Amino acid sequence: MKKLNALRTFAAATAVVGLIAFASQPTNALDAAGSFGVGSDAPALDVEHWIQDGNGFFKPVTDFQDGKVYVVEFWATWCGPCIMSMPHLAELQNQYRGQNVQIVSISDESPEEVNEFLKQESDEEEKTFGEITSAYSLTTDPDRSAHADYMEASNAAGIPTAYIVGKTGKIEWIGHPMGMDETLEAVVNDKWDREAYKKQYEQEQRLQQAIEEISMLAGAGKFDDAIKRIEEEISKTDNEDLKTNLKDFRYSLMLSAGQINEEVVGYYKKQVEEMKDNPMALGQFGYSLVGVSQQGGKIGPLADLAIKNLAPVVDKAEAEVQPLLLNIMAQLSQIDKKLDQAIEYQEKAVEASGERQKQRMELYLDELKSEKESG
């Protein structure tokens, strides 16, 4: 897996316009019947191919043994986040080696595909993926029986997804493998409160479904209905962290709807103050404003707010990102009907661009100059 350069990081950060994630880590929705989730008996594993065994330390698992803790994680060779999680899984397995903890990572690809992948070298670790994953049990199950028993049964959104199986064979936790450290420690040391987590987890799933409905309303342009729906969810939620994130989402919807009142402006002033030394975050905010405007929304004084805070920190960004930030400032200036300022920023964007970027930047500069000449 290649390292992301700054340009790709910026593009990824700004790919989704106008929406704020409501949870701190990926969540998985329960199916309609709620038949499988936290507190359920963990299904036995029917895995076809065991490829790595922790350098001979672990045996294949079918039934989970009482008194032992297992992590059942689903991955694939094509999944970037799965690959990024591998060193962390190895670190956890080494940390708990000899403490009756076994990590079992399951793909649904052919053994040939997996073995070919394991021969490749990671740029991050300067080791092969086979060496990186050698600490834990790496498997593949092409008939997808394990996938059906876990991922499909819990209606999991995607991979990587990990399931912690506790000492009594119950599902203790479901989530992203990078977020399970504290839970795993608590389960191993008999300090985990499964029932409290189950309540929180099920509330998160209900909210996830609500967010999907709200996003569909917003996508259809029904912003008033979407805002009303999210306000209903805020009133029903007793988890303060989730409530805060729902309120963030509400402001994002109001911005997307062009509802720029004093409350919204005040909120985003606070947000911008928190990111004042972060050009990437400010660029993402500015890009979202451009997106709102392109979709017909009004952004009012927020354009000037973004420009004034981004301008002093552009030179702190990596060189290849600076033209993009200057271009965003030019677009915001155009939206704010300040064409001289827009042209100035776009000229700087052209000057800072590499050869491949320059032509596109020059086209927009010509557009600005033409607009100014036409009055």
Rank of each mutant, 00 (worst) to 15 (best):
Q284S: 15
L324S: 15
N5M: 02
D366T: 14
R360M: 13
F58N: 09
K198V: 06
G375D: 08
Y267C: 04
N55H: 12
D53V: 03
G18D: 05
G179V: 00
E124C: 00
I260E: 04
N155W: 03
R97C: 07
H49S: 10
D181P: 12
P111N: 08
N189A: 12
S122D: 09
I328G: 05
V38W: 03
A42L: 06
G219I: 00
D41L: 11
S374T: 12
D277L: 08
D241E: 15
T237L: 05
R250I: 01
L207N: 05
L242Y: 14
V104G: 01
V101H: 04
E152R: 14
D238P: 04
M178F: 14
L92Y: 08
N278E: 12
E274A: 15
D141N: 13
E347D: 03
Q99A: 12
A6V: 07
A220T: 02
T128Y: 08
K348P: 09
K369N: 10
I132R: 04
K167F: 05
A6W: 05
T237C: 11
I299V: 14
K270L: 13
G375W: 07
G80M: 14
V313C: 09
M254I: 03
S107K: 07
E73C: 09
A6I: 07
E172C: 08
S35F: 07
Y163I: 06
I211G: 07
A23Y: 05
E373L: 15
Q205W: 09
G286L: 08
D225C: 04
E126N: 15
E355A: 15
A162R: 00
G291Q: 03
V265P: 02
P26W: 12
A218F: 00
A42H: 03
V350F: 06
V104H: 06
G300P: 05
S134V: 06
D193Y: 00
L310R: 09
I106G: 04
E318M: 11
P160H: 04
N55Y: 09
P87R: 07
T237G: 01
D193W: 08
Q331F: 03
M84D: 14
E320I: 13
S333W: 11
S353F: 12
L282Y: 10
A352N: 04
K2A: 14
D304Q: 15
E274C: 00
A210E: 12
L207A: 02
F64V: 10
L368G: 00
Q95C: 00
F249L: 11
L7P: 04
K270S: 15
N155Y: 08
F10Y: 14
L368N: 01
Y197A: 02
Q359W: 01
D46A: 13
K59V: 12
V272N: 01
L19M: 13
D41G: 01
V114I: 14
A32I: 14
D190I: 10
L184I: 03
A226V: 06
D225A: 15
K358A: 12
I234T: 00
G54I: 09
V38N: 04
M178G: 07
E185P: 02
Y287A: 11
N278Q: 11
A29G: 10
Q322L: 10
L92H: 05
A32Q: 14
G130R: 07
N245H: 15
A257Y: 09
P312F: 11
G175F: 02
E318A: 14
I164L: 13
